[in-house]
Write a protein that binds this DNA or RNA. Structure first.
Lengths: 336, 336
DNA sequence: TTGTAGGCGTTATCAA
DNA sequence: TTGATAACGCCTACAA
């Protein structure tokens, strides 16, 4: 009995394949003893129904695709945990894909998902918007998508985001309150929606306090640590800001490194606050003030919304933005 | 043309299904023009061959299962990246599963994988060894397994580990060299192999320097931050070690928090070194001395070994331990 | 180079 | 409560 399957089992037990199948699917139409006999025999022979055959019949994979720009990142790792938590309760598994912020990888994976690999998709988008028709194809196939954190505005789907504008406004205002006059905004990709929203909060806070917005203070960085080091060093040396509002955790770390090397004292010479999901922000030198998104909750919320869509029966789910709140933690890096 | 498939395409194009199939599988037995016509038409109608049907035929899923205790953890996140890198090159995708260090979850997932969901498995095991027969079943199904970091000694499989004994010995000796007389060893689960190996390095380093091993200095912690805080606080207050060798990153952080609260000065009163994959260890207060495993490389090595097994043709792959080297970074927390 | 046809392993429908 | 049978969508001998 090498390649065991339902047919072989049926023959061995002198039972039909339908009955075997019923034993595995919690069907009520089966005698208890028969079922037990089948399951016992199956266990003994290490048999389980083949997923691909089942999926082919059911057109269901019980798999969720999760697409994120990076994995080795506190925010995304925690969000994945949140997704997994919900998925697990539903008996679903996670197919994980990392885009490295490369648009083409996102497109190719989405296209790959287009035929049966996953029942639904949860994603934080890679980058700036070009043509999003590759996502629209999913609709035709009834594969729902939920965005979290980084979204495409032009795609109709459930979206889980945080109150980025408000947090950014508050963070910037906090820096102003501590006396900063020249606050730089650090961003990785100015053009993606999240970078823009956060920048708008920054701009409006400046405006409220009659501080002119200076283009030069928007420091556009890359995904490469070394290049960023150069950019940040140059900015700190030449522009000499007295406050930093970083829209991305990594850039705050970069700032720390540069400050260490240049002998700039945080918070005396430079106050820093950053979006960050780092648990040990209090242990940094100095403790980093953070705007912390509820990463885990965002993940679980996104998964919950996805399951609502998957389970809907004719009823239409609200494809709208669901806003969760970030928390601001003032610590020593901004004088707290 | 709602539910499109190879048959529908065939009818539309007046071509047989086999030819359609050939167009998608890089078969040489097809006219170039025919192929182009088919692919163009398919693209236009947003068609791709169904994975489940293909997998069912081929008995291949082009999917790798990755099982880790946690995701929101620098070591595992980096290792997953390494795995993904290789998998991607091979056109494989990642099914991710987190065990939370719960043995039963590991068993249930492995059993789930037993029939077709993945072609191979890369795992860092959850916990102490009980009965590992659930893993042996995979062999029967020709689903290869590669372990990394945390392994089961009694299962024959390729294993990617680091020179833990040596690193632990060196780290402990380093603490001794800086003058520590009373070094505590922090561990989460004494009984799993990795905790034991690291402890042995610690013990042997003590022995070499004629420092008696004291059982009380082995601090066995849990997976719960709060409980650990209590354990560590008690240990630091009552046992008053002058050195800490932590086998797990999290416990070093816990130590930092306790020291902050108790006013214990690192490194003056207490020197600390820890296994850790934290990138920003230099930014901690004080900068943390670390034993850093090559997490990314471990992941990519594990994946490479797995593919060797998957691609083997009759040839037997060496199911042995592959040892990569950790690096020790001496920083301020241990007086560096 | 293309077409025919059988089967991959499962499950739902229908009949018994 | 059980069994026979026809799909699910694809791929690969084999034949043409």
């Amino acid at each position: 009995m090498d390649n065991i399957n339902i047919k072989v089992l049926a023959k061995e037990l002198n039972i039909s394949t339908s009955t075997i199948s019923r034993a595995f699917n919690g069907s009520p139409d089966i005698n208890k003893d028969t079922k037990e006999k089948i399951l016992a025999f199956a266990r003994e022979h290490n048999f389980l129904p083949n997923h691909y055959a089942s999926n082919l019949r059911d057109k269901k994979s019980r798999t969720l695709a999760v697409i994120v720009p990076e994995i080795a990142n506190d925010f995304f790792a925690q969000a994945i945990n949140g997704i997994e938590e919900i998925a697990r309760k539903k008996g679903f598994y996670i197919l994980l894909y990392r885009t490295d912020d490369v648009f083409d990888k996102e497109v190719s994976f989405i296209n790959y998902l287009n035929n049966g690999k996953a029942d639904g998709i949860i994603m934080s988008v890679s980058g700036e918007a070009n043509d999003h028709n590759y996502l629209r194809k999913l609709e035709q196939k009834n594969i729902p998508v939920v965005f979290f954190d980084r979204v495409y505005e032009d795609i109709e789907a459930a979206k889980v985001i945080t109150n980025d504008y408000e947090s950014s406004f508050d963070a910037t205002e906090h820096l102003i309150d501590t006396g900063c006059k020249k606050i730089a905004y650090l961003v990785v990709n100015k053009s993606i929606s999240i970078g823009q929203v956060r920048m708008q909060g920054y701009i409006d806070a400046l405006k409220k306090h009659d501080i002119p917005f200076v283009d030069e203070l928007v420091i556009d960085c890359s995904n490469d640590e070394k290049i960023n080091y150069g950019i940040l060093k140059k900015a700190l040396e030449e522009i000499k800001p007295d406050g930093i509002f970083s829209s991305v955790e990594r850039l705050a770390f970069g700032t720390y490194y540069v400050c260490n090397d240049l002998g700039i004292d945080i918070p005396r010479d430079l106050k820093v606050i950053s979006f960050s999901s780092l648990n040990i922000a209090p242990l940094l030198c100095p403790a980093l003030s953070t705007i912390t998104q509820p990463a885990f909750e965002m993940g679980s919320k996104a998964a919950t919304l996805l399951f609502e869509e998957l389970e809907k029966k004719g009823v239409n789910i609200q494809k709208k933005e669901h806003v969760l709140k970030s928390k601001i933690f003032i610590r020593k890096s901004s004088g707290g």
